[in-house]
Design a protein around this nucleic acid. Structure first.
Lengths: 222, 222
DNA sequence: TCTATCTTGCACACTGATGTGCATGATCCG
DNA sequence: CGGATCATGCACATCAGTGTGCAAGATAGA
C-alpha cells in the first residue's frame, strides 16, 4: 500500500548522518558525557540538524553501539584457530584494528545508562570468549585457578581497559593489548612471546620501547 | 593573635561530617556523578547541611581523594619485601583490604574533573610501583618485553579495573586482584600459584569457585 | 528551473543540578 | 539554664543540557 513512500534521501543528508556518527564515535570515546551540541559541532553541523537525523541523544548512541557491536561480533565469529591461545591472541589483535569503533563501546560500556544495551549487543562476542576460555582450560593452555566465568570476565575487563585507556595511535599498542590478554589467560610472558614470534601474522612483533601514555598522568592534552 | 578563635566544634557536628564523607565514599564508588543531594540523603542529612560542612561539591571530593590517597600511600611505603614478586603481591593484597577507601579513588580517577588531583595524590604510590617494576625487571622476575613505564602503567590500570569493577564482598575477590596483577607482571599462573602457596600470609589461599559478577551482566541490582 | 529536501538560527519550555540567604527549631555544652 | 552551634526547609538565582516549533535560506536532483 505504501510503495514509493517518501523518495530516496538526499546525498548530502546521508553524508551528514554518517558524519555525525563518526564524530560521535571519536567524541564520545574521549568523553562519554559529551553534549549533543559538542558532537554536532565536531561534525561541522548544528545541534538542530542532528535532531533532524536522530530522534534522541539515546537513539544516536544506540545506533553507535549496535553498529559497533555488530562489527566485532563478526570478528569473533571469524576466529577458528584450533589452539585456544592463538585464538585469543588473534581475537585481541583483530579487535584492536577496529580501535576506532571499539573505543566508543568500551567507554560507553561503563555508562550506567547503556550497560544493558551494550551487554545485549555484545552477547555473541561474550559467548565466543566464554567458549574459548573453556576450551583453553580443558586443554591445559589457560589457567585453572580461576573459574571459567571469572576468567572470561577478567579477560573482557582487561581488554576493555587497555582499549579504552591507551592511545590507539601509539606504537606498540596492539602488541600491548595482545600480550596483556594472554598474560591474564595465564601464560607466562615468555610463553606469549614465543607464541607471537611463531605467528608473526597476528601482530607487529615489534617490541615495545616508547611509553604509552594517555591520562592519569598529570600532563595530558595540555 | 587569634587565640581561642571560634571554640571547639560540637560533637554531633564532627560525627555528621564524618558521616557525609563515609556516605560519599560508598555512593560515589557506585556512581561518580552522584548528586550532592543523594550523598547528603544517604548520610541521613539534608543537602543544605552538607553545604554547611563543605564549601563545594569539589571540596568534598578533594578531601575524599586526599584522605584515601594518604591512606594507601602509607601502605605502599610499608612494603619492604626483597622479592619484587612478593612485594607486588603484598601491595595488591593490602590495598584490597582498603577496598572501601580505594574504590572511590579508583572510580574518581577516571573522572576528567579530578584526574589531576588524583594523580598528584597518588604520586608516592606510583613511585613505589615504578621502583618495584624496575627491580623486578632487573632481577628477571618480571617481564621485560614491555618497557618499565609501560608495564607500571599496565599494572596500575589492571589493579584499578579489578578494584572498581568487582564486588568487594565476593569470596575470592582479593585473590583475584593479586593473581591478576602478578599475571600482568609476567608470571605464569602456576608460578603465581606457588608463590601464594608459599606465603599464605598474603591472602586467602582459597581457590576461586563462585562467580564474581557486578555489572556488564544484564541482571544487576534489579 | 523548480521543488522537495536539508540546514540553520532563534526562541521556548523543561529538567536536574549547584550554591546561597534566611528564618525557625532542635541540640549540644559550658 | 542559656547562648552558641548546628540542622532543616524553602525560596531563589544560575547554569548547562535536552528536545521542539517555526520561518528563512541553501542545495541537490529530476
Amino acid at each position: 500500500m505504501n510503495v514509493m513512500t517518501t523518495r530516496a534521501p538526499r546525498r548530502d543528508a546521508v553524508e551528514n548522518r554518517a558524519g555525525i556518527l563518526s564524530a560521535a564515535r571519536s567524541t564520545l570515546a574521549l568523553d562519554p558525557h559529551a553534549s549533543v551540541d559538542v558532537i554536532a559541532r565536531s561534525a561541522g553541523l548544528s545541534r538542530r540538524t542532528l535532531y533532524g537525523h536522530f530522534d534522541d541523544r539515546d537513539a544516536l548512541i544506540r545506533e553507535l553501539i549496535s553498529s559497533g557491536a555488530q562489527r566485532f561480533n563478526a570478528i569473533a565469529a571469524s576466529i577458528d584457530d584450533a589452539d585456544a591461545r592463538l585464538a585469543l591472541a588473534r581475537l585481541a589483535a583483530l579487535l584492536w584494528q577496529e580501535a576506532a569503533h571499539v573505543q566508543v563501546a568500551a567507554a560507553l560500556a561503563l555508562d550506567e545508562a547503556h550497560v544493558e544495551h551494550t551487554a545485549d549487543a555484545l552477547a555473541p562476542l561474550r559467548r565466543t570468549v566464554a567458549a574459548l576460555v573453556r576450551r583453553g582450560q580443558d586443554d591445559g593452555s589457560f589457567r585453572t585457578d580461576l573459574a571459567a566465568p571469572t576468567l572470561a570476565r577478567l579477560i573482557e575487563e582487561m581488554a576493555r581497559t587497555v582499549i579504552s585507556r591507551t592511545d590507539a595511535a601509539s606504537s606498540g599498542a596492539a602488541n600491548l593489548a595482545v600480550r596483556a590478554v594472554l598474560s591474564i589467560a595465564g601464560l607466562s610472558w615468555r610463553e606469549a612471546d614465543e607464541l607471537l614470534a611463531a605467528h608473526p601474522d597476528i601482530g607487529t612483533s615489534t617490541l615495545d620501547t616508547s611509553d604509552t601514555d594517555t591520562d592519569t598522568d598529570t600532563e595530558s592534552r595540555a
